[in-house]
Nucleic acid binder design. Structure first.
Lengths: 123, 123
DNA sequence: CCACGCTAGGTGTACTGTGCACCTACGGTG
DNA sequence: CACCGTAGGTGCACAGTACACCTAGCGTGG
């Protein structure tokens, strides 16, 4: 890195985006943490660190959005299997709406930037 | 608030989203901070607090993404007028692409949630 | 037997962005 | 004069995140 003043400020995913992702995956079927780590990658969250994932699951467990039980494994250490609760399903529905809003806002940004760049969005 | 365990974790706008918004507005024309405060509301950022806005402008100024000059005012206190630099324009182009990625990711989430809820996304 | 690697689930901590409260200063108006 | 609106700013505390690190079970190769 030769230029120290290089701008490396990144615009990242929404805050707490991991939560809806996990809830969506758990809505599709129960799973344990280590498994979810791979699956969230398909939802845009490349490289989630395990720390955040497990902490998020724990928090949602305490809040009642998910429920968990230990399942002993014959091929390795025991695992915690998570499932979605009704409350979690409700929360997911709500957050899905606000994500849709965010999607619209970003679309607006794109269109407006397109106008600025001289590209006509509706030919 | 009767229920203390109420889940109030919100999924908000992307981190640093204020930056591209300000750069977009400055791309459309020079402005000063107080003016931008109203304009960002049109881009989905309802209630930005002045603190973050001015700090963001200052940071971008120091990074060379925007340039500023004091302009004395006859009707009130002096104001700092900001304009977009070439570097800022480059950064805006880059960040616009990553926001487009984010938009796609959110679209994917929506479709997948739609499938989960039993709604067919492509009739 | 021991070292190593993979699975699985964590803790501790520092960084960073954001939100809230608060402050200065200028000009106009009652 | 006191007060309001404009304009720009500081200080601080909180929350989410990123990074490093740890424990433990089981299987495999030397």
């Amino acid at each position: 890195m030769s230029r120290a003043s290089q701008v490396d400020v990144a615009v990242t995913l929404p805050r707490n985006y991991l939560r809806p992702c996990l809830l969506l995956l758990l809505g599709e079927g129960t799973a344990h943490g280590y498994e979810l780590m791979d699956q969230v990658a398909e939802l845009g969250l490349s490289k989630v660190d395990p720390a955040g994932l497990y902490r998020c699951l724990r928090a949602m467990d305490e809040e009642g959005l998910v429920e968990s039980r230990w399942e002993p494994s014959t091929v390795g250490p025991a695992r915690r299997t998570y499932g979605l609760t009704d409350e979690g399903r409700d929360w997911l529905r709500g957050v899905s709406e606000s994500l849709a809003d965010l999607n619209r806002v970003l679309g607006l940004f794109q269109r407006r930037y397109g106008v600025l760049e001289g590209r006509d969005p509706s030919p």
